[in-house]
Design a protein around this nucleic acid. Structure first.
Length: 574
RNA sequence: GCACUCUUAGCUCAGCUGGAUAGAGCAUCGGUUUGCGGUACCGAAGGUCACAGGUUCGAAUCCUGUAGGGUGUACCA
């Protein structure tokens, strides 16, 4: 048992790849080996190397021969303990239980679970949420808000320098109407603005019915744009209140957006003429039907940056924002967490920005698109009368429904129940969204998301609480080492070590569902382990008890950390 | 019209850079020495991965075409 001398080193796959690479070199194979993959079945080991088949043609040898050659030079003294050739030339790999155990023990000692921070952080702008100040946040903002926040959490955790940007919509003709109405009502606005949706409707009704009011609204649009102090003050008041509504939602969602992250549309106002000028100077600008356009090679439709009447458009603002982010913020990666329907728009804007040198060629521009939220019938999510569902109402409903999931309500105070309901309810809504492939549409289903069964936040939270209950019951010192006793312990501990790779992969792909899939697999495995390998029961050997407690502890910590990245909390008791 | 995208079990979804007999959950059926939280665990059944070609040693995955759905398509954002 004296071989646990391995340092703190993770990135599981890359370590195994390193072993393979060394074998290649010793065997004199002058090719870069492909990466190992997770074994497709437990009986095939922990990982598998499939590169022998691919090399067959290049080396003019049959794949099993090549596999044998690699295997003969494979170092089975450190990370790996066993390797076998199977089928046409697969190499199945088993990790060394001692090595696994040592790695898990190291992870337990480290507050970051041995997850390394990137040595050279990338400055990443994550643009998400972006609500329109004229209206209340509705379900359409949910996905951007929580996917974006998760991405920001994740990248930040992995060591990137994350800059959150909330590109709120605070500019445009509708604000003339809204502030004219605000002024007409004459109060400070805080009362009537309680329900922005209603306020908007009232203003619109007035606008349509009252010609004088409509004129005033139009006049006010011009006045805000020309910097009229009175109108700007009204406008500012309105934005403040509206942003306050958003913050209420962010707070409920435990989303880390603050006023410091706000870079509103209006922030770029002064830049818009210079963006157009810069494009003109580049010679990419062309007039068409009175509008200033950029025609991109191969695209039918131009990017219009200035209207015939001289006004600017959202493409102009996006270009200004891109330039600001690339040049002022010095971002190396800019991610837009926006509805997939805007794919075409971003594709064009990104191209223009690069071609105009607003953004250096090496800067990664990505549209992190996502699908639409549907009702259980597969239709876009709406209220019964066809209106949009206010996000705050949806979240409140989630908390109400969540109360049913609490086990012994009698043993909690009302306050505790409310706090629990928030953690459960909001967690369920977020998890349901984050656990499906970002790019596809998803069907919103209360019963499913608030179930204890399947890949849900409650199943995770339950597993976590159950582990905590083991520790409450044990209530003693945990001292000892991890012993990999059986196949399930082997699989569980290996799974625990995969966490870092999963996070890195999810960060690259901007895919939160890779994290949830992992957590679900981990918890399922733990539940099986726990069922089969008693921890506190009579007759369990003391050393095994300690080992299992340690594994349970690391599992709980991994669940907690994984959920934390998704912005979901855990509780010790459910 | 053109462009983009999707189609995997009855339902909801995984399936990572192509790899072995395509995986989960729900629903259905059956099981678990009073079980450390049974809101759990185990098992059975269930798929021509829309269809047809192609590339490859190997395709749900890559390419082409067909059918069906969704979305976008110049002065809204």
């Amino acid at each position: 048992m004296g071989t646990k001398k391995y340092g703190k080193q993770m990135k599981l796959k890359s370590q195994i790849n390193q072993v393979i690479k060394e074998a290649f070199s010793k065997a004199g194979i002058d090719h870069e080996p492909m990466s190992v993959t997770d074994a497709s079945k437990a009986e095939f080991g922990d990982f598998q190397f499939n590169g022998a088949m691919a090399l067959s043609k290049k080396l003019g040898k049959n794949p099993r021969e090549i596999a044998a050659d690699i295997l003969n030079h494979l170092d089975l003294t450190g990370v790996l303990s066993k390797a076998e050739i199977a089928g046409p030339g697969f190499i199945n790999l088993w990790l060394d239980p001692l090595w696994i155990a040592a790695q898990c023990e190291n992870a337990l000692k480290d507050s970051r679970l041995s997850i390394e921070k990137r040595e050279t952080p990338v400055k990443v702008v994550v643009d998400y949420s972006g609500p329109n100040m004229a209206k209340q946040m509705h379900v359409g903002h949910l996905r951007s808000t929580i996917i974006g926040d998760t991405l920001a959490n994740l990248l930040s955790y992995l060591g990137d320098d994350v800059i959150r940007q909330n590109h709120i919509g605070d500019w445009g003709t509708q604000f003339g109407m809204l502030i004219a109405y605000l002024e007409m009502i004459g109060e400070d606005g805080s009362v009537s603005l309680k329900d922005l949706e209603q306020f908007y409707k009232d203003a619109k009704r007035r606008f349509d019915a009252d010609e004088a009011f409509a004129d005033k609204a139009r006049e006010y649009v011009v006045k805000i744009q020309s910097g009229d102090a009175h109108c700007l003050a009204l406008w500012q008041k309105f934005i403040d209140v509206s942003l306050g509504h958003c913050e209420e939602v962010y707070d409920k969602l435990s989303v880390h957006l603050t006023r410091d992250d706000v870079r509103a549309e209006s922030f770029y106002n002064d830049d818009l003429p210079t963006v157009v000028e810069a494009l003109r100077a580049k010679g990419t600008l062309q007039e068409s039907d009175g509008a200033q356009c950029v025609f991109l090679e191969g695209d039918e439709i131009p990017v219009i940056v200035q209207k015939g009447d001289g006004g600017y458009l959202y493409a102009t603002t996006d270009l200004a924002a891109l330039r600001y982010r690339a040049q002022k913020l010095e971002a190396g990666r800019i991610a837009y967490v926006v509805d997939a329907r805007q794919a075409g728009h971003f594709k064009q804007v990104f191209r223009v920005a690069k071609e105009a040198d607003f953004v250096a060629p090496e800067v990664m521009l990505e549209h992190v698109g996502f699908g639409t939220m549907m009702d259980p019938n597969g239709k876009p999510f709406k209220t019964r009368d066809g209106g949009t569902v206010k996000l705050i109402d949806l979240l409140d409903e989630a908390m109400v429904k969540a109360k049913d999931a609490i086990k012994d309500k009698e043993s909690y105070s009302q306050q505790e129940i409310d706090a629990l309901a928030k953690i459960i309810g909001i967690g369920a809504v977020k998890y349901a969204d984050l656990s499906i492939n970002r790019e596809s549409n998803y069907i919103f289903n209360w019963d499913k998301m608030l179930s204890f069964e399947g890949n849900t936040s409650l199943y995770m939270q339950y597993a976590y609480a159950r582990i905590q209950s083991i520790f409450r019951k044990y209530d003693g010192k945990i001292e000892g080492e991890i012993i990999i006793g059986d196949a399930l312990e082997h699989r569980l501990s290996t799974m625990l070590l995969r966490f870092e790779d999963v996070l890195n992969r999810a960060a690259v792909d901007a895919a939160p569902n890779q994290i949830t899939t992992y957590l679900y697999d981990l918890v399922t495995l733990f539940m099986r382990f726990y069922e089969q390998n008693p921890i506190l029961k009579e007759g369990v050997d003391e050393k095994m008890k300690m080992s299992r407690l340690l594994l349970a502890d690391l599992t709980a910590k991994t669940i907690k950390q994984g959920l934390a990245l998704l912005g979901i909390q855990v509780v010790d008791k459910l």
